[in-house]
C-alpha cells in the first residue's frame, strides 16, 4: 500500500553549537513509517546550516523575524504555500510560537495545519509564571520571581539566597553568586531578551529532561526521559542517555493530563540529592535532542504531524533504555552561489 506524501515546513534549521530543533525534527519526519515527506525549510538567517543540507531540506525559504509582525509573516507563508502547497508547519522556536499561534486559524483556513499549545497553556507555563503554575498543578518548582529593574534584586536576596539563577524570558540562564553578578546578568539578559528577567532559587542536583507529546485531551502520546551526559558552556546537552525512571514519567503524565497539553514539549527537571524532582522549565515545543526519542522508538515529529492532520496516532508505551545521543559538528563545503541565491532571492 502506498503511503501518503505530506509537505511539511519546519523552522529551527540552525544546527549550530546551541542548536535549534529543526534538523532533528526533519530526521524524525524522514524516518516516519506512516507517510513520506517533502521538507520545506523555513529559515531566519542565510547561514542556518539546514538550508544547505540537501539530505535534510528539499527547499528552503527565508521568513521574517517575529518582530516584523504576524501580517508580514502570514504574507510570506502564503507566498510559500502557493509555491509548495504546505500540509503542516512545525515551528520550533519559543520566540516564534506566539506568532504562529496567532496565525493558526488563518493558516488552517488556507489548508495548513499545526499542532500547537493553546494561548493559555503557552502563557501559564512561561518561566515568568512558573511559581503559580507549580501551585496550580501541584508540581514542585523552585521559587521564581520576575523582576523588571535591577534594583529589585536586593529585596529578593533573602528569599532566594545565593547562588541564584538569573534567566531570560526566552533564553539564557546564569548562576549568580553575589548581588553584583546578579545585576550584571540582569542587564546582559534584559538587553538581549527584554523584560522581565526571572530570578530563580538555585537547586543543587542532577539535570534530567523529558521530551513528550500531548494530544490536547490529557493523553500522553509520547514521553522519553534523558539524562544529560555532557553539556556545552551554554548548558546544552551534547550527549545524553535514555533512562527508565517511573517517577519522571509519572510527573510527565500528570503534567499532560492536568494541563491537557497540546503539542510537543520538553520538561527540564532537577533531581535534588534527596531524590526530589523540581520542574525547572517547560519548553512548549520539541527540543533539539528529539532524535534520541526517535532513535529509541518514539517518533515524536511523526506523531505530532498525524495529530496536526486530525488523526489519532496510538500512544507510544515503550522505548529503549540506555541509548545515547552524541552530537557532533560537521563542516559542509558550500558554493558561494548557493549562499548568494539564498541571501538575495530568499529561497534555495
Amino acid at each position: 500500500m502506498s503511503k501518503p506524501r505530506y509537505t511539511i515546513a519546519v523552522t529551527g534549521l540552525n544546527a549550530i553549537d546551541s542548536p535549534g530543533p529543526g534538523v532533528a525534527v526533519i530526521r524524525g519526519l524522514r524516518e516516519a513509517v506512516s507517510f513520506d515527506v517533502r521538507i520545506i525549510g523555513l529559515a531566519y538567517e542565510s547561514l542556518e546550516p539546514g538550508v544547505y543540507m540537501d539530505e535534510v531540506t528539499d527547499k528552503t525559504y527565508l521568513i521574517p523575524y517575529p518582530t516584523a509582525g504576524t501580517d508580514i509573516l502570514f504574507d510570506r507563508l502564503m507566498y510559500i504555500h502557493t509555491q509548495e502547497k504546505i500540509d503542516v508547519i512545525i515551528p520550533n522556536f519559543d520566540a516564534e510560537l506566539y506568532s504562529f499561534m496567532k496565525l493558526e486559524n488563518k493558516l488552517r483556513d488556507s489548508g495548513i495545519r499545526m499542532f500547537l499549545p493553546t494561548f493559555e497553556q503557552f502563557e501559564e507555563r512561561h518561566k515568568v509564571n512558573l511559581s503559580e503554575f507549580g501551585k496550580k498543578y501541584k508540581l514542585d518548582v523552585p521559587e521564581s520571581i520576575p523582576v523588571t529593574d535591577s534594583y529589585e534584586i536586593q529585596k529578593h536576596i533573602a528569599a532566594l539566597d545565593f547562588p541564584m539563577m538569573v534567566k531570560g524570558k526566552w533564553y539564557d540562564a546564569f548562576i549568580a553568586y553575589n548581588a553584583e553578578q546578579a545585576r550584571t546578568y540582569f542587564n546582559k539578559i534584559a538587553a538581549k531578551w527584554g523584560l522581565p528577567v526571572v530570578l530563580q532559587k538555585y537547586v543543587h542536583g542532577t539535570e534530567y529532561n523529558v521530551t513528550g507529546l500531548g494530544d490536547g485531551n490529557g493523553n500522553t502520546i509520547a514521553a522519553v526521559p534523558m539524562r544529560k551526559q555532557y553539556i556545552t558552556d551554554k548548558g546544552k546537552a551534547w550527549a545524553g542517555i535514555s533512562i527508565d525512571d517511573p517517577k519522571l514519567l509519572e510527573i510527565t503524565r500528570r503534567f499532560v493530563s492536568e494541563t491537557r497539553w497540546r503539542g510537543g514539549f520538553e520538561l527540564e527537571m532537577m533531581k535534588s540529592s534527596d531524590g526530589k524532582y523540581y520542574l525547572m522549565e517547560i519548553n512548549p515545543r520539541i527540543p533539539a535532542w528529539v532524535y534520541l526519542a526517535v532513535g529509541v522508538g518514539q517518533n515524536i515529529p511523526e506523531a505530532l504531524t498525524l495529530l496536526a492532520l486530525g488523526q489519532n496516532p496510538p500512544a507510544y508505551d515503550k522505548y529503549d533504555v540506555g541509548k545515547l545521543f552524541i552530537r557532533y559538528s560537521w563542516d559542509m563545503i558550500v558554493d558561494r552561489s548557493e549562499f548568494e541565491n539564498f541571501s538575495v532571492k530568499g529561497e534555495l
Binding site: M226, R227, Q229, S242, I243, D244, D245, G322
Partner: peptide, 16 residues
C-alpha cells in the same frame, strides 16, 4: 546492568 568488562549502567539514573 553489569557487563563482563566491568561496565555498570544504572538505567534509573543514567549513570555509568
Amino acid at each position: 546492568a553489569v557487563s563482563e568488562s566491568g561496565f555498570l549502567f544504572n538505567p534509573g539514573t543514567g549513570e555509568s
